[in-house]
């Protein structure tokens, strides 16, 4: 399966961004091939509004079935659940750390947005 991590960096050692909608990019990791691709999200960083919605569309277009981030606002959450993408939160420092948490089953799935909308 493909998992999208919000990040500001370019590889697995990059920091995990706690923001979903306004993360600079997503690192989409494929658990089968153990390879990853990067999805740019910078057009959203300063979006007036609807960053979470657009970010969810970006993640869905990349074929991700799960998202790992710090926070997820209500609009992004609605979009992701519509696309059957599961959302997990992590306080890991790096993408690699979040990935091992995910693989160890240590992350809990979000069942509702965990931050207020707007600028999450």
């Amino acid at each position: 399966m493909k998992i999208a991590f919000s990040t500001s960096g370019n590889d697995l050692n990059a920091p995990l961004d706690t923001r979903f909608g306004r993360a600079a990019k997503f690192l989409v990791y494929d658990t089968e091939t153990q390879a990853f691709t990067l999805v740019d999200n910078t057009q959203n960083m300063s979006a007036a509004q609807g960053a979470g919605i657009q970010a969810a569309q970006n993640v869905a277009a990349a074929g991700a079935q799960a998202v790992v981030s710090g926070h997820c606002g209500p609009k992004a959450f609605r979009m992701l659940s519509t696309a059957n993408i599961k959302v997990y939160t992590s306080n890991a420092a790096t993408v690699a750390e979040a990935l091992s948490q995910f693989q160890a089953g240590a992350l809990t799935e979000l069942t509702a947005a965990n931050v207020d909308g707007h600028w999450a």
Binding site: Q49, G50, I53, A56, Q57, A60, R78, M79, T82
Partner: peptide, 18 residues
Amino acid sequence: AFKALAVLDKRVLVFAEM
């Protein structure tokens, strides 16, 4: 113009707060 509607998988989602 206000991104109050989004379409995903042919379904429309309304974000009334926008």
